[in-house]
Design a protein around this nucleic acid. Structure first.
Lengths: 225, 225
DNA sequence: ATTCATCAAGTCATCTGATGACTTGATGAA
DNA sequence: TTCATCAAGTCATCAGATGACTTGATGAAT
């Protein structure tokens, strides 16, 4: 069945205001109606209007000036993008991070410095097994290796996004299935590093693909239940 | 002189609450004090507390449930992560988006529905040339095609990220080099679509690579100046 | 004619109090 | 053991009031 949508007045007020802005009916720099008028237009109380306006201010769409009024600051709504990303499913987030892993490995194979290789080798050696220090510590070491690969790509945007996804995915996993995912083995990781060290971009991509496959397959199983 | 900082109670209340969350003092899933208590703790009225909470809800950090309470949803401060991504260079942002293009094309080749293919074909046909309606309109049509490819991957996280990077890259380009980039040609785009329609993931990846190469080469030239 | 202090209207900022809607755990009957 | 009922706790929303700030108009002083 179609799930019943439960919304609240503030949210719908926010979306109504947002629609006026992104549609361009309220132009950039223009002053919007005051709180009392908006309260009438939206048929909600002034408090609700204020909450809606505050949200749009925090997203950079509006700008309030005490004593003067509320003004349109921008019609571009990118600031909420990552929030919406976080609301997507676990599989989607994992795939998006995998996209970064893939391209980062390819770029790393083209750009890695000797220092990068040394660092990745060290982290891979430290990665060890789950037996050392428990699964939580192992996940941290595993992550450190992956991040070093992304770092070797020299791409700061991808590093930031990788961090973002890592935390978001961790939270989602804790909130839902509680760690039922297979842990990729040491050999698969070594293959990635070898390809990067050899300066082989296609090999690096293939290696990442190989180690991602079982995890994604597990997702499909979990999601199909 | 140091400009006088003028802040308001709602903003400082928001930051106080955010600090509790990102510091981990309030853990994920935990229920936070109710509005009346927060009102006392922050020494502001309940209305102000509600505005602050609403902002954090809109940013995905909190979650309110009527009748139950307010809960910590996540400790990832997406708005901060996004600012850091924005501050990275144009090449880094472009590469990150390319990583999405690449993986999305591969996934689209595996998952595309007949409706997806029809839509992509239509948008590719409409894409036409710069002559029709000027470069601004052409860029919009070009973008529409790329987004349809990402949509065909069925991955919502990647769609949101693609939108984000598109806006960020557009802003950066306007702010810096003012559109000196080569426009990938129609044939290269057709190759992507053909591979996806044929259900050929490797071919889709190769096609995206082929069309990205000249743009990235141009970046290298511009950046080396 | 120009400058500047003053003022009044308009607007957002904040507080207070009240009522309704919803959730959740306890209670007790079937 | 199951399930309907209930009461307490919490967020959702409204209404009214006061304070702080901005802005343009006014008019006196220079």
């Amino acid at each position: 069945m179609q799930p019943a949508v439960r919304t609240n007045l503030t949210t719908s007020a926010t979306e109504s205001l947002r629609a006026e802005i992104v549609s361009g009916r309220w132009g950039v720099g223009e002053r919007v109606p005051n709180e009392a008028v908006l309260s009438d237009l939206l048929a909600v109380s002034r408090g609700t209007v204020r909450e809606a306006v505050r949200v749009l201010v925090s997203q950079g769409l509006l700008d309030t000036r005490q004593g003067s009024g509320t003004y349109v600051r921008s019609t571009v709504d990118a600031s909420a993008a990552l929030d919406r990303v976080r609301r997507t499913g676990l599989r989607d987030q994992w795939e998006a991070r995998a996209a970064l892993d893939l391209e980062a490995a390819r770029l790393a194979a083209l750009r890695r410095t000797p220092a990068d290789i040394k660092r990745m080798r060290q982290l891979l050696a430290e990665r060890g097994s789950v037996a050392d220090g428990g699964s939580e510590a192992f996940i941290q070491r595993d992550l450190a290796f992956h991040k070093s690969v992304v770092a070797a790509s020299g791409n700061k945007a991808m590093m930031e996004l990788y961090d973002f996804f890592t935390v978001a995915i961790t939270e989602t996993i804790h909130a839902t299935i509680d760690g039922e995912l297979p842990e990729p083995d040491q050999q698969a990781h070594a293959a990635i590093l070898d390809a990067i060290a050899a300066g082989d971009p296609d090999g690096a991509v293939a290696a990442v693909h190989a180690f991602m496959a079982p995890v994604l397959a597990q997702f499909e199983r979990l999601l199909s239940q």
